[in-house]
Amino acid sequence: MKKYIRLYIIFIKYSFMQAMMYKADFMIWSLVTVGWIFLNLLFYQFLYLNVTEIAGWTKPQLLVLLGFYFVIDFFLWGVLWQNMRKIPEIINRGQLDLVLTKPVNTQFLLSFKGIGFDDIHGLLIGLVTIVYALSIGNIKPSVADILLSTAALGVALVYIYAAWFITVCAAFWFDRIENLHLLFPSLRQIWRVPQPFYKGILQKILTFVIPATLVTTVPAQFLLRKPSLPLFITLIIFAVVSLKLSTWVLKVALRHYSGASS
């Protein structure tokens, strides 16, 4: 474990050095990120000028959820994206052998080799949004609420990582599906909206089949002091199962890979 933490620190350092070499690129991409966040905030600000609540959610409550959405966006684009993007490439160009021969866990190397800093503002602005929303809504979560919320966010991130990794592994079987790495993150639009907004069978699907709505709703609910234990447990189950499944899928995929090449 210690070795992996050390490795990850090296990866971060290396990525940071690279980012600093191209400061202007960093600036432009930052502008894109901040612009996106800013326009989103503006949109919701504007929505609540005209209505007081949406399906039972007041403005501060929805802003808390939006804050989690920004934080998760950082995790998606900053932490995971460039790795997930490279996995199909690595497989299709036969560069996997280089990864496989290293005395380091293959899944770790494939998943966490680089980190992007362009979206780091998302993390900061997301946290600021949450704190700001709590204060204007006069919502005072207890320490336990905050801890549970953080834990729920962690569980959500595990689920997102594992589910994304599994979808990207399809590249082992289907050569060259362009944009395969973009399939999972397209769900992020789903979790920009709270779970209760969805109706009917779709709500059931987005909760119990693909629990995309839960990743922002569950952490937000803890902070907003209206936790739903069943939803939290659902998320935990999905996270654990997906994580197990992801290592299993990789194992099967590698067997398939070694059978296919050569």
């Binding site: 949406i54 399906a55 639009q189 789903i190 109706k199």
Partner: peptide, 16 residues
């Protein structure tokens, strides 16, 4: 997916 998310957001807004 994007369409569905926006649709339900507006559905929620307009229903109340």
């Amino acid at each position: 997916v994007q369409l569905i998310a926006i649709y339900f957001l507006w559905f929620a807004v307009m229903s109340r």
